[in-house]
Structure formats: C-alpha cells, structure tokens
C-alpha cells in the first residue's frame, strides 16, 4: 500500500475530502494502471483527468501524429504538431502530474499486440475511432478479463458503455458486427466538435475512477446515448446475450485477423 506524502496530500486535498475517495481511494488510484487506446478527441480528456486524479500508471497507445485538424478537439497536444500522439500525450502527463508513471506506445493496437498490451493493465479505455479497433479491444478485453470503458462519438452525438467481461453486456451484445465499411460516416467525413469528445471522454474517466475506487454506479448493462445538440439523453438497457458472438455461449477463444476486417463478423465453427 502506498502512503501519501505531504505534497500528495496537498495535490489531492480536494478529492481526499470526498467520503467515497479519502486516503484509501487515493491510494487505490495511485496503485491503478489504465491503458488508454487512442490519444485523440476522447483520449485527450480521459488522459488529462486520469492523470490529474493521480492514476499511478497510464499507458497510451496511438500510432498517429498530431496534425492541425486535430487541435479543435484534441486538447492535450499543444505545440506538438507532427509528434506521435502517444508521445505528445505522455509529455502532457509528465508536466501535469509527476506522480503518474506513463508509458507511450507509439503504434496502433493490432491483433498481434492487443492481448499483450491489455494484459499489463487493470482497465482499458476505448478512445479509438474505427469499428475494427473497437471490436478488437472488446474481444481482447473479454479474453483477458479486463474491464473496458467504451465510448464513440459523431458530430454532437455519442455513446458510452462500461463492460465487465463475462459479467455484463459487451460491445458485441450491443452491436454484434460492424456496419459495412462506408455505410456509417466517420468524424473525418461527418465532423465532430470538441465539446462532444470532451463530454464523453470525461464520462469515461469518471467510469474508470469509479471502477478503481469501487464506488457508485457504472454504465454496465446499459448504454447512454446523448444528442448534445438537442440535450436528448437516452439511457438504454443492453442485456448480455446468450448468442453474443464474443461473450455468449459460443464465446470467442482467440483473436483472428479475419474478425477485424469489413463487418468484423466472428464466424463460429
């Protein structure tokens, strides 16, 4: 168990005062490890708030580089145009909170490396931007029994859902397979605004904190779909389904590259 020192008591004073956190909760946060996959629109607030709260170990995976079109929503990459996003995010964390050990993975999560990366962390946060990456993380987290906090956004809309493998509904219970490529617009095509990624990223960070301190309620077996343009909040029940191709009776046994192309369908033998 870590023991808070003088400077940590000062840094975390405001949250130490919260009954649900206190010293024990803070120690849990400092001992936790979280993998954030994607250091873009969602990843920025997730990384920022987890680092600020004192999550002891943050892994950041992203193979992209910071470009000018990212800056209206990706708020942690100031001054780092052209730099790898994982490395840029790691710099931000180091400046913000020296308590946090940060590991940058300057590459994409793939079928080959997903399980190995996921296995090193207590919790995974899905801040990716494609269906294949989302299905891959869902399936890797199921295989490694690692909790996953999912979110996805477009324009003023987004969704969030937390998955406790084999206990609560998984991403494939909600969406068994991906829409055919090209049928659903991406942020690149249809747009997104920083407040949307900010809103959902903060909700993701909040889910992670609650998972670590084991307090409060989670978005498990439910999905929150919000239209921020019309302030329309929908909490939708999602049930863990016996015929889910990933976590159901014929659950996934390994990651195969053919599961993450086109519609990401899992063909069960």
């Amino acid at each position: 168990m870590v023991k808070l020192d003088r400077s940590q008591i000062r840094r975390y004073a405001r949250q130490l005062l919260i009954p649900e956190i206190g010293g024990r909760g803070q120690e849990k946060l400092l001992e936790a490890s979280v993998l954030v996959v994607g250091a873009g629109g969602l990843g920025s607030p997730v990384i920022q708030y987890l680092a600020a709260a004192g999550v002891g170990m943050i892994g950041i995976a992203d193979g992209d580089e910071v470009d000018e079109t990212n800056l209206q929503r990706q708020t942690i990459h100031a001054g780092n145009l052209g730099m790898n996003k994982a490395e840029s995010a790691a710099q931000f964390v180091e400046k913000l909170n020296p308590d946090v050990k940060v590991e940058a993975y300057p590459f994409s999560v793939t079928v080959e490396n997903a399980r190995d990366l996921v296995r090193r962390y207590d919790i995974v946060v899905d801040c990716t931007d494609t269906f294949p990456a989302r299905f891959l993380l869902n399936d890797a987290c199921l295989l490694e029994s690692t909790p996953l906090v999912h979110s996805a956004v477009l324009r003023f809309e987004g969704q969030i859902m937390t998955i406790i493998p084999h206990e609560t509904a998984c991403y494939r219970c909600f969406l068994p397979e991906a829409p055919p490529p090209g049928s659903v617009p991406t942020c690149r095509e249809a747009g997104v605004i920083g407040v949307t990624t900010g809103f959902f990223g903060v909700l993701q960070a909040n889910e992670v904190i609650k998972l670590i301190i084991s307090k409060g309620e989670l978005f498990t077996n439910k999905l929150l779909y919000v239209d921020l343009l019309h302030n329309d909040f929908n909490l939708i029940e999602i049930s863990k389904h016996p015929s889910c191709p990933a976590c159901g009776e014929r659950r996934i046994k390994e990651l195969r590259s053919e599961y993450y192309v086109e519609t990401c369908r899992i063909e069960t033998d």
């Binding site: 629109g41 990716t128 996805a152 956004v153 991906a178 659903v184 991406t186 942020c187 779909y225 939708i236």
Partner: peptide, 10 residues
Amino acid sequence: VSLVPAVAGG
C-alpha cells in the same frame, strides 16, 4: 422505441 445508430468516431 429508441433508434440508436452505430457510431465509431473518437
């Protein structure tokens, strides 16, 4: 009845 489109952006 709620309709929820699949979104994947991040």
